[in-house]
Nucleic acid binder design. Structure first.
Lengths: 115, 115
DNA sequence: GCACTAAGATAGTCTTAGCTG
DNA sequence: CAGCTAAGACTATCTTAGTGC
């Protein structure tokens, strides 16, 4: 379950940020309101604000987005990954320990030098 | 040179988006105004707007950010990579062909299952 | 409880018109 | 030319107060 965020069924017509946020929240099992509160949003506006983000009505500032990312345990950059493959790569990077990250970086370095 | 964006010297106290944008632009060799025009910003406001973004005074909407990413040939998510290592990974991913991306994804998948 | 919304209050960005090195 | 800025015009988000399931 924690490895399958991008497999969740989210409307592909939603704007990028909305789509990624909704996928990550559904994967976490939190309600919109509880996610907002967990991210430090005022309890009286949390429900409306997270809903507006997920429906693509509004976009939060980067600080709010960072709090959401932390609450959802995903790297901040995940919200703006345009391709699903890059989204997966970023999610997996976020789950690796320091040693595995080094290994992954080394692999990417080698591959990019081959081109 | 094209592989060294994160090595550029950019004020680490700048907000995240400003820091990544400036590093990518300096690497590209474009002026602030020329980058803005290349990204489709009106020629009369391009200089002011890109400068405001790089100084952290303002942040563009996601569509403008996507145009900037395209002009700079970096993945959109790069602008919000909080850690330099993740920024490098995203940049390198953006430079790989489809086959190398698959290889990199497979490596990340294996590593994340080991944890 | 959960997802969602309208609309006014509020807070942001954008444009213009400059400046300095 | 390149980098940068103030401030008013403009446009976005946030809060409040609700709705329906």
């Amino acid at each position: 379950m924690p490895r399958g965020i991008t497999r969740s069924e989210v409307d592909p017509d939603l704007p990028l940020f909305a789509r990624r946020l909704k996928a990550a929240r559904l994967s976490s099992g939190l309600s919109q309101e509880r996610l907002g509160v967990a991210a430090g949003v005022d309890e009286f506006s949390a429900s409306a604000r997270i809903n507006q983000y997920e429906r693509g009505k509004h976009t939060p500032d980067v600080l709010t987005a960072a709090h959401l990312a932390k609450a959802l345990k995903v790297p901040l950059a995940y919200f703006w990954a345009a391709e699903d493959d890059l989204a997966k790569l970023i999610l997996w990077y976020g789950q690796l320990n320091a040693k595995s990250r080094k290994t992954l970086l080394a692999t990417a370095d080698e591959l990019s030098q081959q081109e």
